[in-house]
Every structure is written in C-alpha cells, then in structure tokens.
C-alpha cells in the first residue's frame, strides 16, 4: 500500500470485523529520536492465534479466500523501513497493533491522507466510537467521534456531516502539531 493511512484503514476494518465498538488510532512523532509510531487499538474479540500465525499471508479468518494480507503487508512495510510491529492485547480489551519506525528511512511509506481515511471510517461506521490521538514531542490532540457528533445538530443522521466535522478536526490537529508526512 502506498500510505500508512491505508494500512490504518485496513486495521480499523479488521477491528470492526472483530466486533469492536471503540477504536483508537494513534499517530505519534518523537522527533528527538526520529521515530514515528502508529497504533490501532480496539475493544473487539482480540487475537485468537499467535502473532506469527496472524501475520502469515496465508492465514485468514475469511472463508471466501485463502489469503490474509493486511497484517502481513503492514509488517513487511514497517520492517522494510527499519521498524518493528507488535501485536498485543489492547488496554481496551481487544487487539493492539503498534508499529514503530524511523521517520527518515528512505523506504518508509508516507503517512498519507489520514484525515480522508478517518472520514471514511466515521462516515461508514456511525455506531463506532473513533478516537484519534495525534502527538508530537509531548503535545497531544485527541479527537473523538462522540465529542464531534455532540456539536452537530440532529440533521446529521447519515453521518456525513459528522464525518466532515471529524475530517476538519483532524486536519486542524495535524496543522497545529505540524505533523510531517
């Protein structure tokens, strides 16, 4: 995949499929150490197999196909850029996928359109509580779907107005923190 944001979208889709009602997406930049950390945590049913099995491209829970490329591709991309990916139990009770990689590695994928990615998630999953944490060197901004939704009037039932407001909040947060691609 061309962008880290597309991997994030894929991980959120996995979380939704695992029955999550809350998903936290974190993008942290530690500039002093030159590190980028991307994490997706959920309160879904968690991992049912060991980590090495879950990242095997020929392991899938789907009955429609024989491959499960999402985690495998993400792990490959992270490791190609000199980083590492860890699967563990999330503080929310489900799965935590956390990747750390050097920001300046030539093979690191760009962050991409994070706001557009989260717009998609909010738009198409109105029941999901989506929390996005953006942090650069200790300065943090958190955007939650419920907080954004509360400020909208009730004419937003198709979720698009809330998604647009969420998109703007993320854009604003990224500009405020000056998050680099």
């Amino acid at each position: 995949m061309r962008e880290l944001s597309l991997h994030i979208l894929d991980l959120v889709e996995n979380a939704v499929k695992a029955g999550a009602s809350v998903v936290t997406v974190s993008v942290f930049q530690i500039r002093g150490l030159g590190l980028l950390e991307v994490a997706v945590e959920d309160n879904g049913k968690g991992l049912e197999v060991p980590q090495d099995v879950a990242t095997d491209p020929f392991y899938t829970t789907s009955t429609l196909k024989k491959t499960g490329l999402g985690l495998s591709l993400f792990k490959g991309g992270v490791e190609r850029s000199g980083g590492s990916m860890v699967l563990s139990t999330s503080p929310l009770g489900g799965l935590s996928v956390r990747a750390t990689m050097p920001m300046t590695h030539v093979d690191r994928s760009p962050l991409g359109d994070l706001a557009g990615t989260l717009f998609s998630v909010v738009c198409a999953n109105p029941e999901l509580e989506l929390v996005c944490r953006l942090r650069v060197d200790g300065r943090e901004i958190e955007v939650t779907r419920s907080a954004v939704g509360k400020k909208r009037d009730m004419k937003t039932e198709n979720g698009i107005a809330v998604a647009k407001a969420y998109y703007e909040k993320i854009r604003e947060g990224m500009n405020t923190l000056d998050i680099t691609q």
Binding site: K17, L64, K65, C123, G159
Partner: peptide, 8 residues
C-alpha cells in the same frame, strides 16, 4: 453508506 470486508 456503509463499509464491509472483502467478498472474494
């Protein structure tokens, strides 16, 4: 408008 997974 909704999203879902792969349908093969």
């Amino acid at each position: 408008l909704r999203q879902s997974g792969c349908i093969g």
